[in-house]
Design a protein around this nucleic acid. Structure first.
Lengths: 357, 357
DNA sequence: ACGGTTTACCCAAACGTTTGGGCCAAACGT
DNA sequence: ACGTTTGGCCCAAACGTTTGGGTAAACCGT
């Protein structure tokens, strides 16, 4: 225990042991295929390689970064990692980063502008090559400032005008939910729409409202409330909906965690999800299928979003052009909105399950 | 757009502009109180400071790390960040790290030994000063190897013999659950115990079983099943419990996510939580209070665990001695096990709610 | 006035890489 | 036989810090 950590092997050590110059060793081990051909004779290459992995040589990233002015580090900013959606996206980012030989710093900003600034400065101080923002606020000029400074970045999950991002097609997702509820005959619906600065909530709500308007059933203002994205937010938003008017026949909560909070609020009011009203969430986080009344939701490709976000940033870093990418959502219908499934689950007749219509 | 990123300000630039030597500037800006006193006259100090923050000087961490052989980087290994428990612990780590001027790399190992090794090598290659393991396997010698190499580390969430860790007192937590259920008159109980290599599951189950044995009600083997820690695992574990014998009157699932999976399984079997049987989870993740039948659980100080883990690692890095720390759990009784609460919630009489006894 | 201390700096090496250029000898072309 | 190319390597500077050791001038006490 407590063995002194051995000093890591350097190029110099390898060079000395082989009677070579350090630059030769460097080229042998690290030169890209294009240029390293004439670095050394093949027996020498062989000797170097062998000794390097015999000694367990590991390139010192600090020396390398210092010399090359490139850190191979990516900063990732998210509202909070304890939100499963963001954590899953980050997993995708990290996975893809590892494949590209990059490492990531992730930081929570809690969606607070000052913290976003502070954390951005922090990752920049760590000399990251680029940043992935998962916490973009659509109404702030912050990202414009960052762009003006020449910092390469992309957005994930949320979008903001004029910046490249990888997001779920939230507008379409919202429309799908509307389509689904319209098909079931719902006419009086409400939305718990999330934070007003997040494009996710805005677009999901927008698609949803547009589709209802097209159906000749515009959603009145008091039926759309903003809220935080966590369970507490969903609960509070739902309370406000219930307070603002009669019971709607369906409730669209723009994220699953919020929807779970909504479930709590409805329960407290003695309302039964799937009977007294339909509830739909968004994201298809792994939990909501397990709920006592499984939740209808929209599956968004969170992991893939992270992977693509990282890949897009890599493109940007290479100086290639990159454009915003919309990933396709998928409606997942479950018992919380579907009378058939509800009935099957509860072993009752569908007629009993549609009392809310 | 695409403004060239300005080359960062260096000590050299400041020194040149002021006609000073770079070493003087370095000492002025960075020397610790003890030694830097005689670095420069106070007017000089003033000039340096002023120019430094006028130019927005930021110390280059790579140069610093290279020179000092210290990176101020911490590696954090977790099974997966999309598990809210680990994400919350990590938030604590990251928060405390920022307070100490440290940055963290976090990586998912999916609880797979090869990935643990690979990710450990990866963070080591990044020259972290120390590691926080959130994915310790109690049965593998891996941590011993890491320790033998002289790498400073601490564990969080899980413990392993001979290594310092910061964990919840899981054994006590298990006992508390047992105590609670015994008080309600339960005699035939089952446990979904999590992965067999995780100290969390082992100790929670151990405390629980010990307490029942002390009460003269030893839990038979077929009433204890292992499982993965996610919702699917909880579901599968519960299925196995149901298959292995008659319906127990209470089910202890050693983590909340698993408990939610259990809820799904029970629902599929037409069993009502809180009526047909009691269910208890562990961790008090923010969701479980919002469930249609709120879940009884044990609150574990996840965030605090992360904070303390980081602080403990800092101690270790300073060469001071550190010892394993147990944080106190707290039982949170809700309707999933408490007939009173269940009755109040459902607006029925408690008598109707205890049909399971 | 003179030895000793203190003040306020400067100097240079070092951390481990990368990379443009150089050099010598062998191979090649004519 | 004489330039030219090529192969195989070495050289040295640079990236931006930190840090142990100077040194010259100012200050002090006597």
């Amino acid at each position: 225990m407590g063995a002194k950590r051995a000093r890591p092997v350097t190029l110099q050590m390898i060079a000395d042991q082989l009677g070579l110059h350090v630059s030769t060793v460097s080229r042998v081990l690290h030169a890209k295929p294009g240029e390293g051909l004439r670095a050394a004779s093949s027996p020498t290459v062989e000797r170097v390689r062998r000794l390097a992995d015999e000694l367990g040589y590991q390139r010192n990233p600090h020396a390398m970064s210092l010399r090359t002015q490139r850190s191979n580090l990516i900063g990732v900013l998210v509202p909070r990692l304890s939100d499963v959606v963001l954590a899953t996206i980050y997993e995708g980012v990290e996975e893809a980063a590892a494949e590209h030989g990059l490492s990531t710093f992730v930081a929570n900003t809690r969606d607070i502008p000052e913290e976003q600034r502070a954390r951005t400065e922090m990752v920049l101080a760590r000399r990251v090559d680029g940043i992935i923002f998962g916490d973009a606020h659509s109404d702030s000029g912050f990202l414009d400032e960052v762009a003006a400074r020449g910092v390469p970045f992309v957005l994930v999950n949320r979008q903001a005008a004029g910046h490249v991002s990888v997001v779920c097609d939230d507008y379409l997702g919202g429309r799908m939910v509307a389509e689904h509820l319209l098909g079931l005959g719902h006419e009086d619906v409400a939305v718990v729409a999330g934070e007003p600065y997040a494009s996710t909530g805005i677009n999901r709500t927008g698609g949803f409202a547009d589709r209802f308007r097209e159906a000749g059933l515009p959603i009145p203002e008091h039926r759309i409330v903003h809220s935080r994205f966590d369970a507490r937010g969903g609960r509070e938003g739902t309370e406000r909906v219930l307070k603002a008017g009669p019971l709607p026949s369906a409730l669209f909560v723009v994220n699953d965690f919020g929807a779970i909070g909504a479930l709590g609020a409805l329960r407290d009011h003695g309302l039964r999800v799937g009977v007294d009203l339909a509830v739909v969430g968004f994201n298809d986080t792994p939990l909501v299928a397990e709920l006592p009344v499984p939740l209808t939701t929209v599956r968004s490709p969170m992991h893939e979003m992270g992977r693509r976000g990282l890949r897009k940033l890599v493109r940007v870093l290479e100086g290639r052009r990159a454009e915003t990418e919309l990933l396709r959502p998928e409606l997942v219908v479950r018992a919380s909105s579907d009378p058939e499934q509800y009935a099957a689950l509860m072993k009752i007749t569908p007629a009993e399950a549609v009392r809310h219509r």
